[in-house]
Amino acid sequence: MNYPDSHLSDQQLLLDVEGELSAHEGKMARAHLSACWTCRARRQEFEGAITDFVRLHQSEFAPDLPSPSGPRALLRARMAQLSEASPRGLARFWLSRSLAVAMAACAVLALGVATSGLIVKRTGRPRLQAALYYMPDSRLTPGATVLLHRSAVCSQSAEGNRSVPVSLQRQVFQEYGIPSADPQAYEVDYLVTPALGGADDIHNLWPHSQSTTWNAHVKDALEDRLREMVCEGSLDLGEAQQEIATNWISAYKKYFQVDQPLPEHRRPRADSAR
């Protein structure tokens, strides 16, 4: 490209007008334009053509647009709807919810001690779509405990969780937006197991998917481990309750020192049919 010795092409002129030439090319073009009246006139013609088109565009293709406030409000409402309902949003929520759950669990456990009952005010229930639940929704299942001393926990039978009445199971499915759930696909599970002082309350129950890797049998293994530690005195009961309510999967990884459930924990235990 030797601009001083030859005229600029139409494309080069337009690219120069548009600021789309590289720094070097732009410098060369300007050097040529400063010496060439013909190219400067042609460049001016391109500027004029742009002006002509912009005038046409503004008069023909720029309708008087209504205020954006209505469409903006509609967009925001639709986004809010999506963020409530989208399964992905929910899935990501599981990844980042530990703080919220921890706060909820702390509130639950503190009040549980004071009232030996429960706990969280129930507000409008979000309706969730059927999904694979390996963690409860903290808005629905923050966890609930009864006031029990360690000795009371450890003196009671270590057998599996009490079975949840069918009517209560139905309520749990209803709350989670899966009223016609296949009972075989879920186990209505205690978040804080009664074997660790968990309450028989809907705030402490959730539909645990059977088909996930982190299924109810894995959680049973964690509960057994925590109870063992509480009863041998190496773990505080309140701490055990809080860890399981906050994020039972993290607790499992912590106490078994693994990243994935151990194969023997994924299957039902031989001595129990929970």
Binding site: P71, L75, M79, S83, G89, S96, A100
Partner: peptide, 26 residues
């Protein structure tokens, strides 16, 4: 960001998308 709390993250996302809407709707 996965590390952001869900409510905060969605609120921020709503604001970002709304801001882009205000700028590019016309």
């Amino acid at each position: 960001a996965a590390s952001t709390r869900r409510g905060d993250a969605h609120a921020r996302l709503h604001e970002d998308v709304t801001a882009v809407f205000d700028q590019l709707r016309d």
